[in-house]
Design a protein around this nucleic acid. Sequence first.
RNA 1: UCCUCAGUAGCUCAACGGUAGAGCAUUCGGCUGUUAACCGAAGGGUUGUAGGUUCGAGUCCUACCUGAGGAGCCA
Length: 464
Amino acid sequence: MIRNGQYIKDLFQLAPGTKATAHGWVKTRRDSKGVSFLQINDGSCFADLQIVIDAGVADPAVLVQATTGACVRVPGTMVESLGKGQSVELRAEGLEVLGAAPPETYPLQKKRHNLETLREFGHFRTRSNTFGAVFRVRNALAFAVHKFYQERGFLYVHSPILTTSDAEGAGAMFQVTTLDMMNLPRDPATKGIDFAQDFFGRPAFLTVSGQLEAEIFALAFTNCYTFGPTFRAENSNTPRHLAEFWMIEPEMAFCDLEGNQQVAEEFLKYLITYVMDHCKADLQFFQERYEPSLLPTLENVANNQFAHVTYTEAVSILEKSGRNWEFPVGWGSDLQSEHERYLTEEVFRKPVIVTDYPKSIKAFYMRANEDGRTVRAMDVLAPGIGEIIGGSQREERADVLVDRIREMGLDEKHYWWYLDLRCYGSVPHAGFGLGFERMMMYLTGMKNIRDVIPFPRTPGHADF
RNA sequence: UCCUCAGUAGCUCAACGGUAGAGCAUUCGGCUGUUAACCGAAGGGUUGUAGGUUCGAGUCCUACCUGAGGAGCCA
């Protein structure tokens, strides 16, 4: 295996004259009369390693197999480059093609492909410049998430993927069953499907949120967070939605909506700063190729206060804008995409935290305000992305929560343990959910969420 | 799910209703250090599918399939 010191990113650090063996996949080969140039990459860094192969060093029959996509091992010596474009290169002293990639059939070429085409080759797109950069940033971002919370004493909790709670209210769920779909057992009384015979003895689903379980942990470990996959069976066909995505959900006891906003802002800034510090070359590439204003935007967000506005104030701004909205603005109706865009992209030109929404458009568990008509909800809206964070202070008063559950027409029996938390050792607490891929989009400037997750799942698509 | 746009060579794209082309890739040849290398030549197509209009359809019409964008749902 390849160990530290042997990755291509390490070879770039070696002093000229040092012996080294490079391993990787060929990006391109250029031949001249007496010399060939091989450009290879092993995913360890954005830059490709240039390998110089003088005539006679490699068996010509082997050299012709070193085409785009082939896997090679090249022993040699690191030298200062005679050419422009790289400071050091590897002077080959041999060449092994471990796995050829016949160019007649290998789908990727040493030229630019569009993202839709690349998506069809999910098993090879990882070798492209773009997806190399995407997944290095994703790796760094995931690490930064843990680093942020671990540095602040938050407990990492694994919330369940399978759930029998069909009342989380965050969207359509995927049902999970071991019943024979061709021969479903029936309940003789109701004629319905007899889920008593299913694996869990009742209907089960993939989770749409770990929040309710995270609250259990916050009320024992003070501060905690989840970071795992989440599933929504919505028939959403947009560049911002996936059926399977990753979400980070911190939950804090002894915390109100103000504290919640502070954590959210500190968190986003920390993630941006971490990735800018650790993935410079990758971000540079995204700026050159995908989003010309990427780095200035990220720096601006990392170094400035987010805008804060209540829902009521936001509605007022929208009403005074003089715009002809496709969807009318009015207190009580939810903000539409066009409204969010106007606020983030035109009014504030940076992330905006909107708080205190009407209770009628928010979930039952959000804490009621004294005015009787709004709740302590917050959405963080980002330019170009829309809602990147959704969260709230939770209703910690048992009697108020029961009223809300009934008011929304829900069955309080389903929430027995959630209500118990309010009856025994309750405390004001708050939390939010950050869509990991939405954050990836913001950091990379990639415009389609299917291009920032390794294997996207969307309606009609679950390849690889 | 609704609305809009698109589908032509392996890839990126041209082609007024009138003989389907180019660049790159591929194959062959050339070139003493290249940077999406360069120069020359060759091969490569049932124009997404099925119907229809027309003397004639890549082009117009209908349906379907696939993809993208916008909307809703949300993270």
